[in-house]
Structures are given as C-alpha cells and as structure tokens.
Amino acid sequence: MGLQAYLTLAAVIFCIGLFGVMTRRNTIGILLGIELMLNAVNINLVAFARFSADVTGMVFTVFTICITVSEAALGLAIVILLFRTRRTVLADHLDLLKG
C-alpha cells in the first residue's frame, strides 16, 4: 500500500476523534476522543518514517506515546478530582468560569 492510503486512514480516524471531542458531554468521553486523535497522529508519524526510511519519525512516535500516557493519567486524575468536588463529570455542568 502507498503512503497515501495510510495518510487517508489516519485522517479519517483523526476526524472521527474530533467529532467525538466536539459532541461528547461526558468528560471521559472527550478524553477518549483525544486518544483517538493522538493515535491517528502516531499512524502518520510511523508511515512517514517508513516511507522515507528514516527512524526519526519512529523515535518521535515513542515520545508521543509516552506523552499521551502521561496526559491520560493526568486528565483522568483531574476528572476524578472534579467528580469529588462537583459530583458531576458532564462538561456542560462544569461552568464555574463561565461569565
């Protein structure tokens, strides 16, 4: 398969993740959408690395995977903290800073 096929697949998954981030009301659902988007970016990085025969893209994929895991752990800790203080994880109800 050519590079174009992998880029198209990654673009479709990225847009599905974006759709999830925009439409989900539950904060955990929004985080799942963000995971999908980052996953699509990883596919792009690996595909470009493979088709240019350069390992730099794969090294960066290792880095982005680690950063994504940190982001997920921290984001879910914030969700748990929000639930403890506000008793809700729905993004619509988290409007403390709304004017």
Binding site: I13, I16, G17, G20
Partner: peptide, 8 residues
Amino acid sequence: VGSALAVV
C-alpha cells in the same frame, strides 16, 4: 474506522 466510530 468501525471501532473508532463505535467509540464516539
């Protein structure tokens, strides 16, 4: 694509 759609 199918499982991503199911996620959202």
